[in-house]
């Protein structure tokens, strides 16, 4: 651990990775909590896979057509928001079709991404880092974008705390109090989409859903209120990211999957500890 800290102090690329991880953790804690308590992780999963389509198209336009202003992160953001609104619209208007639409988006998003990556010169090698994360390759410019996204997400998530709590906990009650329930549901999906984009720059789009939901799920075991859960989830996410970076770096493993193993391991541990506790009490 000590050696890792020394290296962080020495190498800017590790500092960037840590900074990106810390920023992403805050969004993860706030939005992950809403997503877990409202039980919509499967929707966030669908959005995550559409992100690859956005990345592929953005890179294609960027390299083949010289749209230099269009970054993969920008493409990912646009694709995620479109996917969120599309799924949200379907789930509000035709709930019985929701799972079909989400499954279709999963596949179509991935397929689009892979096709555009195939026809874009020199991009195939990047595929792995989009799928499984490239936190060690984060540039200072990307950190800026991550910071802005983070401010938007956390700002909205906290500003609308009461409305989102009411909508997540008791939708009927929120409606009676005059909260535009549909609007806030869509807002929640958009926040989830932006968080997915943020986290996917840390662990990649395949693994992002675990990082979005596991810290909040672990926090949910011992928190009695939503804001406690948000703070705990943020701290847990930080722990997983730093822990994953450290073990990954020390053992020369990919950072993204290592972070997820930390998160999954902790979740299993807490679940097992609780089960054991319940057995002993019984």
């Amino acid at each position: 651990m000590f050696e890792f800290i020394e290296n962080v102090a020495r190498y800017p690329f590790l500092q960037h990775a840590v900074a990106a991880g810390l920023l992403a953790s805050v969004a993860c804690g706030v939005v992950g909590t809403y997503v877990v308590v409202r039980r919509i992780t499967y929707i966030a999963g669908g959005i995550a896979h559409c992100v690859l389509g956005g990345i592929g198209i953005a890179r294609y336009l960027n390299i083949e057509h010289g749209w230099t202003w269009l970054t993969p992160l920008g493409g990912a953001t646009v694709a995620a928001i479109i996917a969120a609104l599309l799924i949200g619209w379907v789930s509000l208007r035709a709930k019985e079709r929701e799972d079909t639409i989400i499954s279709a988006l999963y596949a179509v998003g991935m397929a689009t991404g892979v096709l555009f990556i195939q026809i874009t010169t020199g991009m195939a090698t990047d595929l792995q880092s989009y799928l499984f994360g490239n936190i060690l390759l984060v540039t200072p410019q990307q950190i800026w974008m991550i910071g802005v996204l983070n401010a938007v997400i956390v700002g909205a998530g906290l500003l609308f705390y009461k409305q989102l709590l009411a909508v997540c906990f008791d939708e009927e009650f929120a409606r009676l109090r005059g909260v535009p329930v549909e609007l806030f549901y869509l807002l929640l999906l958009c926040l989830a989409a932006l968080t997915v984009v943020l986290l996917s720059s840390v662990v990649g789009i395949i693994l992002v859903i675990a990082l979005l939901s596991l810290p909040a799920a672990v926090a949910g075991f011992f928190c009695r209120s939503l804001w406690q859960m948000m703070i705990s989830a943020t701290l847990l996410c930080t722990l997983f990211v730093i822990g994953g970076l450290w073990t990954g770096y020390s053992l020369n493993l990919l950072a993204g999957p290592t972070i997820i193993v930390w998160a999954g391991g902790s979740y299993l541990l807490v679940t097992a500890a609780r089960a054991a506790g319940r057995l002993r009490r019984a």
Binding site: C168, E172, R224, S225
Partner: peptide, 13 residues
């Protein structure tokens, strides 16, 4: 109509 596992205290409600 309520999700009873939701992390809110009686006071919050």
């Amino acid at each position: 109509s309520i999700d009873w596992d939701f992390p809110v205290s009686a006071l919050d409600v």
